[in-house]
Nucleic acid binder design. Structure first.
Lengths: 104, 104
DNA sequence: ACTCTATTTCGATGTTTAGCTAAATACAAA
DNA sequence: TTTGTATTTAGCTAAACATCGAAATAGAGT
């Protein structure tokens, strides 16, 4: 869990996860969304991989990254539960006791 | 948000929050639950305070710490929303599409 | 004022992190 | 096999972090 939170403590890495949420993407394609040097980004990938939040797979001469939602879920859920919260898919109709109204 | 996740990336700090969840507690009382040196723990408090996850208040010659649940909620909620999740109080009846059944 | 207790600050040390450039590697295509 | 593209590793700097023991501070009680 510590590794997951550590990975999430960097905005660049959170953005990477957000981008991967839409689907797998190559390192180069991801790099196009950032201004940092590619080796720097590669190090960020390594941190995310270490936390098992992403997996990599070689395809031709590029590397495709894919998010592991289950790992994210488990970490967040595990933590949230310790604080008396629940994690739900947000397409659910507004629940009875929302912590905060998620729709404007 | 980065500060919150950074604070959560350490098990000692997570445990501090968990202890404070039951109610305010003095630094010394908290220290009783850990084996690390007090200065070390004091540094952890500083990280938590920096992230606004706790507040401190002097009472006599001791310092009482209190958790700021709203800050935790906001950070977790903000992140969860970006990934299509919702955070609910867990005393809510089982929601319609739980990610994981939270009751045994 | 003195003393005791609680907590934090200080100073030192070793580890980790983010970032860079330049070099190495892996693969595709020609 | 050579060339080109994509990605990672190597080697570095500067800043941040974790941890400790010792010293400083703050307040309570005598």
């Amino acid at each position: 869990m510590s590794l997951v939170f550590k990975a999430l403590s960097d905005p660049t890495r959170r953005r990477v996860l957000e981008l991967l949420k839409s689907g797998p993407m190559s390192a180069g394609e991801l790099a196009g969304h950032f201004t940092v040097a590619k080796p720097t980004l590669s190090a960020h990938f390594a941190v995310l991989r270490e936390a098992r939040l992403i997996t990599s797979e070689k395809s031709g001469n590029s590397v495709i990254y894919q998010i592991q939602m289950s790992v994210l879920e488990e970490a967040l859920l595990g933590f949230a539960q310790a604080f008396g919260w629940q994690l739900n898919a947000s397409d659910t109709p507004t629940p009875e006791t929302p912590i905060k109204a998620p729709r404007p």
